[in-house]
Amino acid sequence: MTETITFFKTLTPTGYLFLALTALTLLSAISVVTARNPIYSVLGLIATFFCLSGHYILLNAQFLAAVNIIVYAGAIMVLFLFTIMFLNLRKEDEESKTNLTKMASVVVGGILMVMLITIFRAKSAQVPVVNATTFDAKTGLVENLGNLLYSDYILPFELASVLFLVAMVGAVMLGKREAGDRHF
């Protein structure tokens, strides 16, 4: 008990902020899974994205935080909400709640957890401690990120954009109305 009290006394304001933000993140992430209504789930997921953006800001990555909000909370989740609003929510969808799907989701989730634990426990993946005196305050800002993306990581960056282009062309192909299709 005294250990926890001394631990809380030694924390910096940033530490308190981190703890509060983490609690919020976990709460909203749990509410995504436990909510009965899909709309509440989506709103919980949006709250989770906001908390993650807060974590990015604490890690000095302003650009990443803003882009996370614009892309995930602002565009993708709007589309999610859009789709869910079209579904008939009054009827209970029994098909997605069979024992098989529950087993499958447990297995997938368990594998993901094992993977994450092994990654974080690996010696080579330990995050190096930042030296406060030599730390460059501009590390996570746009200019540095842009320079890195267009010099060291140019090939993965361009490959990822080609991947997006392929996905977009595929979406247009699927959405195209063919000659005999009926009009809605």
């Binding site: 709309i39 709103l43 949006i46 302003q62 650009f63 803003a66 882009v67 909000i69 614009i70 909370a73 602002g74 565009a75 709007v78 909400l81 859009f82 609003m85 800002l141 746009v142």
Partner: peptide, 25 residues
Amino acid sequence: EINIGVLYIFGVVSLGVYGIMVGGW
């Protein structure tokens, strides 16, 4: 004064639709 002011406004604007969607639903 933040160095990503344009992105900030863009992010807030993209959130503006939630009020309408949530209320309408």
